[in-house]
Amino acid sequence: MKQLKKILLIDDDASINFLHSEVLKHYTISANYELMDSSKAAMEAIQNSKAQELPDLILLDLNMPVFNGWDFLDEMSVQIEAIQKIPTVILTSSVNPDDIEQSKGYTNVIGFLSKPLDVEELTELMKLYRASTT
């Protein structure tokens, strides 16, 4: 499969974010990784990016202080189309059926996976990504 250009990883726990990026790197999923431990800062970074620098995929934690994953998704939906459409996977520590239901309201959310990302989760992730981009 074609390598992605950039994956943006958002999680307030820097260690787990780093772990996820290392797992992705091990399988050379992407050429670049951007790690953010604040979703607010991540949003600002996206807003200030040129279109060609936008990530191909976002991995998003839900439970974060102040500006959580849902806030991030809401903010995404009022940005320019290129940002609105970035495929996003929610990565969370406890998969709650209500959250899955709520995530269906966002068309760019392509999947819901549980942390930490391991080989099986990663396979599932890439399947979801391929399905969303073809």
């Binding site: 787990i16 091990h26 520590s93 930490p116 391991d118």
Partner: peptide
């Protein structure tokens, strides 16, 4: 028990990664 599980999962994840590499 729920919140302690999270950092622990990170530890487990890194061990898996070490073994994987």
């Amino acid at each position: 028990s729920h919140d302690l599980q999270e950092p622990l999962n990170t530890v487990r994840g890194f061990i898996k990664l070490i073994k994987l590499k």
